[in-house]
Simulated scan of single mutants.
Amino acid sequence: MEILASRVLLRPADYERSVAFYRDVLGLAIAREFPGGTVFFLGNGLLEVSGHGHEPGPPSPGALWLQVRDLAAAQEQVKQYVVREPRLEPWGLYEMWIADPEGTRIVLVEVPPGHPLRTDTRTAKD
C-alpha cells in the first residue's frame, strides 16, 4: 500500500473545548477548517480535531489518518482488518476504517479529484 499523507486524529467529547486548547493554549496554527473539524499544523505533521467520524458510543481516544492512492486496492490488502467498509463521507473524502491488532483505529482515505485537498491555492504569476 502506498501512503501519500498522514495525520493524527482526535475525536473529543467536547469539540469546541479541544479546539480552543490546541489553538489558544498550545498556539497551534490552523492548516484547514471544515464543518465540524479543524486541522492544525503539528511540527512536521498534522493534528485533526473533529466532532464527527466515530460510531455511536464513547469518543475514540485517537486514530491514524492515512491517505492512499487507491482505496479499493488497500481494502483488498487489509480486508481482514476492516471495521467499516469504504464510503463517501459528507466532507467529500472516501474513507474506510480498519483496526490494528490492539484496536487502534486507522482511517484509510482516498481524496477524489476536485476535492479542496487537491486544490493548489497559490495564485498564478502573470
Rank of each mutant, 00 (worst) to 15 (best):
L28T: 00
G27W: 00
G62K: 10
R11G: 03
P35C: 02
R122S: 15
Q67K: 13
L88Q: 10
T104L: 13
L26N: 00
V49T: 08
E16M: 02
L28Y: 04
L42R: 03
S6P: 01
S60D: 11
L4N: 09
A124C: 05
A5M: 10
L93E: 14
L66S: 12
L10F: 11
P113I: 03
L9S: 05
L4C: 08
E2P: 13
A63F: 09
E110I: 03
P86K: 02
E85N: 10
E48C: 14
A5R: 14
W91P: 01
Q80Y: 02
Y94H: 14
V78F: 14
E48N: 14
Y15S: 04
V8C: 13
L9C: 10
G43Q: 10
L93R: 07
G43W: 13
E76K: 14
I30F: 01
Y81V: 01
L42T: 13
V83S: 15
P101S: 03
V78I: 13
V68T: 14
P58T: 12
Q67H: 12
V111H: 05
T121A: 10
L47S: 09
S6C: 13
G114D: 08
L88M: 13
I30W: 00
G43T: 05
P58Y: 06
L71A: 11
L46W: 07
T123I: 08
G27F: 02
G114S: 05
E55H: 09
T123M: 08
G36C: 05
W65D: 13
V107Q: 14
A73F: 02
D120Q: 11
L71Y: 11
L93H: 04
H54N: 11
G53P: 08
H52K: 13
Y22K: 01
D14N: 15
R122L: 12
R23Q: 09
R87Q: 14
A20T: 09
